[in-house]
Structure formats: C-alpha cells, structure tokens
Design a binder for these strands. Structure first.
Length: 856
RNA sequence: GCCCCAAUGGCGGAAUGGUAGACGCGGCAGACUCAAAAUCUGUUGGUGGAGACACCGUGCUGGUUCAAGUCCGGCUUGGGGCACCA
C-alpha cells in the first residue's frame, strides 16, 4: 500500500500544468467566455488563511467553468501601493519598492504552491510604472471630462509629525505615533465626481441580480437618496437667510431651533465676532473627521443669539444654534430641529430647554393627551396636529402640502438630496500613483502631456523627517510648465489606493497594452462574470469600481454598464486565541490541548486560557500559516478543509482536527483507486458503462444523483454541500457489492465520476487518481459530467404522514402515486388511525412525494 | 451613534413553507494488532421506556398557516461597514 505523498504529487502536476500552459487564456470570440476574479491581495509578506479561502473558492469556479467548456480568464495581481510599505520604510529603513517587491516574490511562491489555475502571464502590480502610467492617463481623461476637480476639504492633521493621518491612525483623538491631539485642517485636494452618477449607481443596483441582496442594500443606503424640501428661514435683523434641507417638511410647525454646521459660512462669520462661538468651533476641530467620531461625540451646540423667522408664520421665530452634529457635506449644512419627531433633535432640545411640540399624531392616540416623553415619535404614520393648514393630513400628504406652500411662498422647493459625497483621491504620501498635473503660477493647473507619462516616483526619498517625501524631495517637484515653460511645480500628492483597485479587473484583459484597456480585449472579457472577496469591501471598493466603469465608458475606454455581473462575499477565517498564565498571547503551536477541552503551554506546562474564536490576527497570535499547513498536508487538504463544513459566505473556524479530517479523506480517496482487490474488482479503462437493465440500477442512481447534486451545489456556491455529496458518493462507491462485470463496471464509473467531481476542489489528487485509473490525458482537460435525470430518480418516495401537523407514520409509495392512493395508504396506518380515533376528518392535505397531513 | 448581516446536537453545519439534525468532526462500543498508530464495523439531540413508542427541542418573545429553522412584528447576543487600512 502506497501512502499518498502530497508534496511530491502536487509539485509534479503544478510543473506539468505550467509546462503545458494549461491555464493561459486568450480572447476567442467563437467561444463563450467566463471571467473569474478574486480580490487581489495586498502584498503584506505572507499569504494568510483568508487568502487561501478566497483563492480556493475562485479556483473551484474557474476549474469548474473550464470543465464546462468556457474560455476562462482567471488572473492574479497585487494591490501594491499603500501605507504599510511606508511604515516599513520608516521603521526598518527599507525602501517601499524593495519591501513590496520582496513581499510579492514571497507571496507569489506561496500562491503557486496552492495549485491555482491562474494565468500568471497576466500578473500585474499596481506599483509598477507600467500600471500606474495607464492610471495617470485615465486620470487625465477624467480631468478633461470634468469627472475630476479640485476643492478644499478637511483632513486629520498631526501637528507634531506634520502629516495627514488616516482615520485608523487616529487613536482616541491622538496621532498614533506622536500621541499629539489631532487637528482638522483644510487642504486643496482632488476629487472624482462620483455624485454625478448617484442616480445611475442607485438605479442599476436593481439589475445586479447575481449580487447578494445585503450588499445592494448597503450600497443603496450609502448612496442615500432622500426626497424632501430645501427652503429658507429669513433671519431677524439681517438681510440674509439660512437655507435648510429636510426630509420632513410636514413637521415644520414643530420646529423649535435651527442648527448650523461649525463649518457653515454663517457660523464662521459669527465666530469672528463671538468668542464663545469661536471657542466652540475650534473645539469641534479637535475631533477627527470620521463619522464614528462625529456621531458618538456628545451632541453639543451653542446659541448664536440670532433668531430665524418661521416660513409659515412670520410671527414665530426660533433660535439659531451652531451644533457639532450637523454635517457641512450633507444637504445645505443647516437643519431645522423638530424635537417631537427626531430623536437627536429631542435630546438636543431637552439639553438646552427648547420647546417640544408634537405635530404628528400616531394612529389610535388622542390629540389632547398625546405628549412626547423620552422618545421622539419618528414613524411616518399618523396625521398632522398643531400644524395650521396641515392639520388632519396624513404624513405623506402633509409633506406634499408643505412643499407646495413653500413653493407658492417663494421660500423653497421640493428636492432630492444624496448622502453620497464626491470621492477625495489626494493623499499626502509617497507610495502611491503620482497625480499627473503641474501647478503653474501663470497657467494654473496644467495636465502633464501624454508624451511625458508616466510621472514616475523618484527613488531617492527620505522617510526620516516629518511631512510628505515627495514634497520635500530636493528636485522632483520642480519642472517647467508645459504650457508657458516658466518654473512650475508638480502636484506632490498621490492617488488613493482605492483608485488602483478600481480598474485592475479591466487591466487584466490587456495587462501590457500601452493604453489603459484594449477595446477588443475588454469588449470580449468584461464584465467579470464572478467576483469573489470579503464582505468588508461591500461598499467602498465595489462602489468606486462601479464609478470607474462609468467614467471609463464616458471617456471611451470601455462600453460596459457594470464591472461585476456576479458577486460573492466570503466569510472570514477565525481561530481560537490562547493566553498563557502570564497573560501573554500564544501561537497555536505553542499550546497543547488535552482531552477535557483544556490546554497547557508546551514550554512551561502551565494552563492556558482559551479565548473565543475570532478573526485571525497577528496581534493575538491566533494565526495558522498556510505554508505550514501546505508543507504538512499539501495544498489539496488545505483547499478541501476550506470548502467543507462551513458555507462560504459564513465565517469559518480553522481547527487542527478539521485539517486532519480533510487529510484522512485525501488518503481514503487515494486508497480507493490505489488498492484494487479481488473482492472489489474495477473494470478496465474503456470498458462499457454499467447498464441499468444489467443489474446496475442502484449504483447508477447513486452516481447520477451525485453528479446532479454536486453540479447544482457548485452552481449555487454551496461548496460545503457539494463536499457532503462527494463524501456520500465515496461512501456509496465503497459499498458497491459484487465481483461480476456489472459491478466492476459500476465501480469504475463511480471512481471516475468521483475523480472528475473532486477535480475543481483537489486538483492535484484528482489528476493523480485519473492517472492511476489508467488515463494518459489530463484531468484538467476532461469535460464536466452530465447527470441523466431518469437514472438519478428514486423509484420510491418516503412520505411523512402527519395528524394535525405531527408526524405519526412514514409510508413508502411508488414515486408520483395518485393522490387518492397515497391518502388511502396514509389513513390505513395503525398509528394514524390511533390518533384520528373517531373524530371527523376535516381535510387531508397531500403534497406529492412528500407529506400527507390529516386535519381534524 | 447610523446602515447591513448572523444565531440549529458536544462541535462545523444540512433542510423548494412539508419527516429538523444530511455530510463531516468528536464521543462510545467492537474488529484487526503483542501493543499503539492507521484502518474497518456499529452507535450517537434531550428526557422517559425492556420495547413499540411518547413528550421536548432550531437565541428570546409574540403572530400568520393544515404545517414555521424557514414568513411577519418586537427584543438579546455576536460580527461587517461608516468615506485617508486594504
């Protein structure tokens, strides 16, 4: 008995596939195409289990579609720009490029050991000038098409490090390195006009029928279309007015204050003359720019002393506050507060002693007794009260009436606002794509001429002093203006790394072209038929890619509507965490488990605290290196474990026991083909297929059932179910009885089917089994089997018989028996009779081949 | 704080509104072995019962239905995202 040597076998077949270019893809309009793409990795240095899961899922699809005859494109690349390379440069004095390319080399080797069916000839890295040159071209085209523009915007500023901080670098309001309190600062930055496509980005979600519903919902909420009204409050004693936006104009009679964003022009103007206000505005600048920081901060405001006149009742006026929770980016930067029907407004009103007037009466309540307590009434159901001409109207009608009145008064109009903001893409960093524009004192913003692209990153940069490396480089930014030839200066910002990943799927179609995308190639390959990645990208990355697709269409680089026709979001890989008696985190290999479920630290023998399972992270040391698993068990075992047990969209816990279980199954499959015995003969290669009439009805049913179920499960991304059905087929094949030619033939058909079905999941083992079964051809070139529905069908149906919904008997009937026959058989069961007794039967429900329910 | 999702045996999970627990892991019993590992066979939701069988059971709670893990309402707990991490 030969033990299956995964290491040797896997290396052999990987070499063979490479040698034969089995996975090289080429556009071929005569064949149906299928583009499978997994989210490309950031080159952090080593692959982690999340990558193994992601790329295994994609590889199953790629190999399966290939077996079905599709011309498959399955590429891989590197999301290679980003902050960690600069941090490494600062901490370890290694150049970002060196660090990145070393990491890529290491990770490429690890990915190759997984046996993925990738077309490596198309590999790309976003930090390569060949890639970012084309990105600069796109940027300039977007600029010309008015899809890119400059405006002032706020950033987190670290006053000690003299640098802009990412939100994740702001810890409790302080810079992560300097510890200095972060300030908000305004900088001129580049923006992409994603809001121009807001209506289309929202409407087109309906057509993405192969996207998870929850991702579409999250995107819709993010885009955030709101219907409402925009209107003016005139100010007492001043000529100007405050423009507000509200989705609830029907509650206008309940207004008890106005609130301005601290960044509102009027707030700034007033702050210049009002010390308290100036202090308050300065205080709000201490908090970070993130939504969490804003919304979890205590809601505070300051009375400006101004009063605003109610649009519907000139005799009424309300105080004007400046409040820290009003966003300048949304609506008009000013709101009216209606405490009765908005919880935040209510909290604010209670805090500052402002009146609370209920103006919507919930159904079944009395106007006289209805009052607002600790909770605002925010449901949009009920009738207007205390609201003058709106009284008695339902909320929807009251909204319409209020807007009509505002329009008649010339005070405002009905309008639609979007939560989505334009995409700020400027980053004050080195390791990113340089923004290809030149700032000239005389000519303004001048695009870098096409002949001068790419604008390359200088290599000699210093990371040991505060500020942006590109900005303080001695020569890089100094250039002659392309228009007037006078001294000018390059833009020293680089592009957000989300820009890099917003079009890489298109670049894979023609990765070396000297245009961003070759039309013939993208027209053939795009859209991506199946995109696979983490749910954490549900909003930003996917939305930005959808924007890029539209922007590339407008600038003539592609003609498609949506980049990803199918999307699958996988769950994360979790592991238990371990803490030593001293409270230090321990790696799984430093811990030994005992039978009782406890664990000890191997080095000290002391007991270990087992923490809950959570996302694998270096800081908690609850990580298992894929390279170690592949070295110990082989890639097929790792792949199989990733696919079995947990549904791919759910989180998966990596366990040693599970990995060993997968390894045992690999060995078991190998023994099935490697150990023929006289009691279990296998027909020779090419022998006639088993025949239903020739006594092979049962084996044939098992095999065809398995083909149908595995195919269906893969199609619907339920790989764990496919795995279960493969186990079932392996169990069935082992049980095939008999030594006659019919049995031998059934056994061969069963083993060959099993081999083809595991092909996408455990490709090396499958290839080796195929060879062991006597085939010269490669398994990767075998077509996917087709199930015969007649052969897969059961002859008997097991029908549950219920009395009043409770199971009382089970009867076996020929499939598709007449309803009357089923009913009669059900009522004849002793146990059924027992429960019916002498009670009259009201109704008998018969679900064909499934259930009979007797209703008394 | 806001948006989105999830919860089923000891564990991972299966289940077009129709027999809850497929398949795997683990456990228990047995076979093989000098012994162990590996492998094979049987068994395994809980309670009661010799058994037939009965009752209970899909996070909590209320509802719709002949029938609810599945649909609807209200909660609890855990997770993802929140615009400069990728």
């Amino acid at each position: 008995m030969s033990r299956y040597n995964a290491g040797e076998v896997e290396a052999k077949w990987q070499a063979r596939w490479t040698e034969l270019q089995s996975f090289a893809s080429q556009a071929d309009p005569s064949r149906p195409k299928y583009y499978v793409l997994e989210m490309f990795p950031y080159p952090s240095g080593r692959i982690h289990m999340g990558h193994v899961r992601n790329y295994t899922l994609g590889d199953v699809i790629a190999r399966y579609k290939r077996a079905q005859g599709f011309n498959v494109l399955h590429p891989m690349g590197w999301d290679a720009f980003g902050l960690p390379a600069e941090n490494a440069a600062r901490d370890s004095r290694v150049h970002p490029a060196r660090w990145t390319y070393d990491n890529i080399a290491a990770m490429r080797q690890e990915l190759k050991s997984m046996g993925l069916s990738l077309d490596w000839r198309r590999e790309l890295a976003t930090c390569h000038p060949g890639y970012y040159a084309q990105q600069q071209r796109l940027f300039l085209d977007f600029l010309a098409a008015d899809l890119a523009y400059r405006k002032e915007s706020w950033v987190n500023w670290d006053p000690v490090d003299q640098t802009v901080l990412a939100n994740e670098q702001v810890i409790e309001g302080r810079g992560w390195r300097s510890g200095a309190p972060v300030e908000k600062r305004q900088l001129a930055q580049w923006f992409f006009r994603i809001t121009a496509y807001a209506p289309d980005l929202l409407a087109a979600l309906d057509k993405l029928d192969r996207w998870p519903e929850r991702v579409r919902l999250m995107q819709a909420n993010w885009i955030g279309r709101s219907e409402g009204a925009q209107f003016k409050f005139r100010l007492q004693g001043r000529d100007d007015a405050i423009e507000v936006f509200s989705t609830r104009p029907d509650t206008l009679f309940g207004a008890s204050f106005l609130a301005l964003s601290p960044e509102h022009a009027l707030a700034r103007e007033l702050a210049a003359k009002n010390r308290d206000l100036a202090a308050f505005v300065a205080e709000t600048r201490q908090s970070g720019t993130s939504a969490v920081a804003l919304e979890t901060a205590e809601k505070k405001g300051i009375d400006t002393g101004l009063r605003a006149i109610h649009p519907f009742d000139p005799a009424r006026s309300v105080p004007v506050y400046v409040a820290n929770f009003v966003l300048m980016e949304y609506g008009t930067g000013a709101i009216f507060g209606c405490p009765g029907h908005d919880q935040r407004d209510l909290d604010f009103a209670r805090k500052y002693g402002l009146p609370v007037i209920p103006v919507v009466l919930p159904p079944e309540r009395e106007a006289k007794s209805f009052a607002i307590g600790a909770e605002a009434y925010t449901d949009e159901i009920g009738r207007a009260i205390n609201s003058g001409f709106l009284d008695g109207l339902e909320v929807a009608d009251a909204k319409r009436a209020a807007i009509a009145k505002l329009e008649a008064l010339g005070q405002g109009r009905g309008t639609v606002t979007w939560r989505l903001r334009d995409w700020g893409v400027s980053r004050q960093r080195y390791w990113g794509c340089p923004i290809p524009v030149i700032h000239c004192a005389a000519c303004g913003i001048v695009p870098v001429p096409a002949k001068d692209l790419p604008v390359s990153l200088p290599e000699d940069v210093a990371f040991d002093r505060p500020g942006s490396p590109l900005d303080h480089h001695p020569t890089w930014k100094h250039v002659a203006c392309p228009r007037c030839a006078k001294p000018a200066r390059r833009d020293t910002d680089t592009l957000d790394t989300f820009v890099d990943s917003s079009w890489y799927f298109a670049r894979f179609c023609s990765p070396r072209a000297d245009v961003p995308a070759e039309r013939a190639q993208v027209d053939y390959w795009l859209p991506v038929d199946q995109y696979i990645g983490g749910i954490e990208h549900a909003i930003l990355h996917l939305l930005y890619s959808r924007f890029f697709t539209r922007a590339m269409r407008k600038t003539g680089h592609a003609a498609l509507d949506e980049p990803f026709a199918g999307l699958f979001t996988q769950g994360m890989v979790l592991h238990e965490s371990y803490r030593s008696a001293e409270g230090k985190w321990l790696y799984p290999e430093e811990v030994k488990k005992d039978e009782s479920g406890g664990a000890i630290e191997i080095a000290s023998g002391k007991p270990v605290t087992i923490g809950r399972r959570e996302v694998m992270s270096k800081s908690k040391k609850n990580v298992v290196a894929p390279s170690a698993i592949i070295a110990a068990y082989g890639a097929d075992t790792a792949r199989w474990f990733m696919l079995s047990d947990s549904p791919p969209e759910r989180d998966l816990e990596w366990t040693e026991a599970g990995a060993q279980g997968a390894w045992r199954f690999v060995q078991r499959l190998w023994r099935l083909v490697d150990e023929p015995s006289p009691e279990r003969p296998v027909a020779a290669k090419g022998a006639a297929r088993p025949d239903a009439a020739g006594g092979a009805r049962d084996p044939l049913r098992e095999i065809h059932k398995a083909i149908a179920q595995v195919t269906e499960s893969i199609e619907s991304f339920r790989f764990n179910v496919a795995v279960a059905k493969i186990y079932a087929l392996a169990n069935a094949v082992e049980q095939f009885a008999g030594v006659d030619p019919a049995a031998a033939s059934a056994r061969r058909f069963g083993l060959e089917t099993l081999t083809v079905l595991i092909g996408p999941m455990m490709p090396h083992l499958a290839e080796e089994m195929w060879r062991r079964l006597g085939h010269e051809s490669l398994l990767v070139d075998q077509p996917w089997p087709k199930a015969d529905p007649d052969l897969a069908r059961d002859d008997l149906a097991m029908i549950a018989v219920q009395v009043m919904g409770r199971l009382r008997a089970t009867i076996a009937m020929p499939r598709d028996s007449a309803e009357d026959a089923v009913k009669a058989a059900a009522l004849a069961e002793d146990n059924v009779k027992r429960y019916i007794e002498s009670k009259p039967i009201r109704k008998v429900i018969v679900v064909p081949n499934r259930v009979v329910n007797v209703v008394l």
